[in-house]
């Protein structure tokens, strides 16, 4: 799918700020000078083609009273699949990536309470026999997402 000028405007201007009003599209149509029906149709099409992963609110799990952390383990190649299965088996593990470093498996743990993070880490350490390097966010510096297309 080739992006149109309208698509680019929507992606660049609408990564936040979708109005919280009864008629959000009317407000946007005026601001961006694009008819409401066109915006809805283009977003629907971009979503169907996977260019947009989602349209709506992005929730911050920590602010809901839950726990969130980034953690890493150092896995020997011959144990990679086994350790991967163990870590992925936890519902609290939301994302898991293989990365090219001595610490080669990086995963995000999201829990309903902050205390549960350590419980999950202890279980992963017990089941894998590996040290889990816990790297919770201590400070956040980015202002907003600003991918421009």
């Amino acid at each position: 799918m080739k992006l149109t000028a309208v698509d680019r405007t929507l992606i660049n201007q609408l990564q936040g700020g979708f109005p919280l009003t009864e008629h959000p599209w009317d407000e946007l149509a005026e601001k961006l000078s694009i008819p409401a029906e066109d915006m809805i149709e283009r977003i629907r099409l971009m979503q169907a083609n996977g260019l947009i992963s989602r349209f709506g609110p992005i929730y911050n799990a920590e602010r809901m009273g839950g726990g969130l952390t980034l953690a890493a383990v150092k896995v020997e190649p011959e144990r990679f699949a086994e350790v991967n299965d163990i870590i992925n088996s936890f519902d609290q593990v939301a994302h898991n990536y293989e990365r090219d470093h001595e610490l080669n498996m990086w995963f995000v743990i999201a829990t309903e309470s902050p205390e549960e993070i350590q419980v999950v880490i202890d279980k992963i350490e017990a089941q894998t026999g590996l040290d889990v390097y816990n790297m919770p966010k201590q400070e956040e510096y980015f202002l907003e997402l600003k991918l421009m297309v």
Binding site: Q15, F18, F55, M64
Partner: peptide, 13 residues
């Protein structure tokens, strides 16, 4: 309260 970070398009990089 920051529970909703923002509302809009989440692009697939």
């Amino acid at each position: 309260l920051g529970i909703i970070r923002r509302t809009g398009i989440i692009p697939n990089h």
